[in-house]
Write a protein that binds this DNA or RNA. Structure first.
Lengths: 215, 215
DNA sequence: ATCCTAACTGACCCGTCGGTCAGTAAAAAG
DNA sequence: CTTTTTACTGACCGACGGGTCAGTTAGGAT
């Protein structure tokens, strides 16, 4: 027989509309801590305050739950950055500053672990990798490319090769995010991420500056 | 009863000294492809051409097998780089070029996936993370710091903050390695890693150059 | 109050995998 | 040759976790 008649008052409420976000939130927290494969749906359920079966009422399986988390928690951030980047209210230089500091600021929140997670499990979950590359990586790359082109047109940067420059701009910020979400607890001397990023922008903008007309 | 008396000629030879390296090699290949947790020791055994039990004759458990792989396949590379870096036969600038191109060159070999793997599983295997930070990350950081100091003393670079500069130097190369070992198969437009690294060094060295005396 | 729908549950099913060990056979010793 | 040693094997054990579904109950309808 299933389910022995417990006399403990198992608080069971019916809140169809609140469940999906509660489950997503719990899933994000655990995916971030442990990775995709290592996260047990039983733990997600416990953390969300529901039974394991309830997850399957709202999400067909673990992979779709992950996609839902990315769509709900990562994409809005990216879209906000796109809005910032495409309003040319300021210089390309300050736009890049804003974008990279926004990226670094995610470190306080669980989403910051998603890049690590995707990089880690790409080989074992090709469908998730493809989804992430198309929805996040490719969009992010185009975003930076647009800002760099604007900077060149307005004379802030020299005429560098734009696609080749994107990795240089983002790599240090991305590495800080990866470092913070994985190895930093085991390091002896902690890095100050803000100082590193500030220094990166200083060195980068000198490196990209137009060549001085020689006297 | 155990082991039914197979009449198939199961090629069984006794080669005590060759086994450890065969097992390590198989383990490295599979750890690189799938990660630490997702690699089954049964598969390692099959690939090494031995029975599963044989692994346990030479390595006490999965974690120690991984440590052995890192010690045997990663550390010698690092030591070779240390030798290059500490002979000041050339300028600091060319030394950095050599180091970063050597790092990038690992992309053709399975070891290139180890950084990804460690970043990915650090949270679930703290002992491995600590081991890697101490034996690899910290040593690599000190290595770059020494070269940067030499460059400043010899007037190749301006007097930047050395510890803050290390991440800027290595981040793009490391990101290329991570990209190549995870998401690059799913990207539409592939990057040319050599071109990116060349461009990185160009931008970086301009950014680190001593300030021109104004006329 | 009683029925009915559907939100919710968790014991169970089943495939998986790290680790074990009784048994097997290759090679060395006598 | 026979005996002894030991490298080697793979069926098995126990824990584990994604996914299922028979059963339970909240709460609206009548």
């Amino acid at each position: 027989m299933h389910g022995p008649p417990s006399n403990l008052p198992t608080r069971r409420t019916r809140r169809k509309d609140a469940r999906p976000s509660e489950i997503r939130e719990a899933a994000l927290a655990l995916f971030s801590e442990r990775g995709f494969a290592a996260t047990r749906l039983g733990d997600v359920a416990e953390r969300a305050g529901v039974g394991k079966g309830t997850i399957y009422l709202y999400f067909p399986n673990k992979e779709e739950l992950f996609r839902a988390v990315v769509r709900h928690d990562l994409l809005p951030n990216l879209e906000a950055l796109e809005a910032v980047a495409d309003s040319d209210a300021t210089t390309a230089t300050t736009t890049l500053r804003t974008i990279l500091f926004a990226l670094l600021a995610t470190c306080d929140r669980p989403i910051s672990a998603i890049p690590k997670l995707v990089i880690a499990e790409a080989g074992n979950f090709p469908a998730l990798a493809r989804f992430y590359v198309e929805e996040v990586t490719a969009r992010g790359r185009r975003l930076i490319e647009r800002v760099l082109r604007r900077g060149i047109e307005q004379g802030e940067f020299r005429a560098i090769d734009v696609p080749l420059t994107v990795p240089l701009v983002v790599a240090p910020a991305l590495m800080l995010v990866l470092w913070n979400t994985s190895l930093s607890p085991y390091a002896e001397a902690p890095l100050d991420p803000v100082k590193v990023l500030e220094h990166h922008l200083d060195v980068l903008f000198r490196g990209l500056a137009p060549i001085q007309p020689s006297p």
